[in-house]
Computed example of a mutant assay.
Amino acid sequence: MKTYDKDSKKLIRVVCNCCGKELTLMDGIPVEDICSVDTLWGYFSKKDMERHNFDLCESCYDKIVAGFKVPPKITDTTEL
């Protein structure tokens, strides 16, 4: 879960919602990759119009997707 400073809006803390690990920041920039999920549930769910967001460290992401019946689509990209 990301925490921002109220006044400056600068990122001040990131904690993996799965394992609780605090990810390292340098000047408000994560030095580890984060899987950030943000979804707005629609009318046909039991979470109608709820917004859920969470952050995962890379290790927890790997553990979770390892259990998928259909793996995520992975493509290579180049930097812009």
Rank of each mutant, 00 (worst) to 15 (best):
K2S: 03
T3W: 07
Y4N: 03
Y4Q: 04
Y4D: 09
Y4C: 08
K6T: 00
D7T: 00
D7C: 00
S8F: 01
K9T: 10
K9D: 12
K9I: 01
K9C: 09
K10S: 08
I12D: 07
I12L: 07
V14Q: 03
V15I: 15
V15M: 11
N17M: 00
C19D: 02
K21N: 06
L23E: 06
T24L: 14
L25K: 03
L25M: 10
M26P: 06
M26Q: 15
M26C: 12
D27G: 07
D27Y: 05
D27S: 12
G28Q: 05
I29L: 06
P30T: 04
V31H: 11
V31L: 15
E32Q: 13
I34E: 01
I34F: 02
C35W: 06
C35M: 01
S36G: 08
S36E: 01
V37H: 07
V37Y: 04
D38S: 08
D38F: 03
D38Q: 07
T39S: 14
T39V: 15
L40T: 08
W41P: 05
G42H: 10
F44S: 11
F44M: 12
F44E: 15
F44V: 09
S45T: 15
K46E: 06
K46F: 06
K47W: 09
D48P: 00
M49Y: 15
M49A: 15
M49D: 13
E50Y: 12
H52C: 10
H52G: 06
H52A: 08
N53V: 05
N53Y: 05
F54W: 07
D55K: 03
L56I: 03
E58C: 08
E58W: 06
S59K: 08
S59C: 01
S59T: 09
Y61G: 01
Y61N: 05
Y61F: 08
D62T: 05
K63N: 13
K63Q: 13
I64R: 11
V65G: 03
V65Y: 03
V65C: 13
A66E: 14
A66Q: 13
A66P: 00
G67Q: 14
F68Y: 14
F68S: 14
F68A: 15
K69E: 10
K69F: 08
V70W: 02
V70E: 13
P72M: 13
P72N: 11
P72L: 08
K73L: 10
T75K: 05
T75P: 00
D76S: 05
D76R: 07
D76A: 04
D76M: 03
T77P: 00
T77E: 07
T78V: 13
T78P: 06
L80S: 06
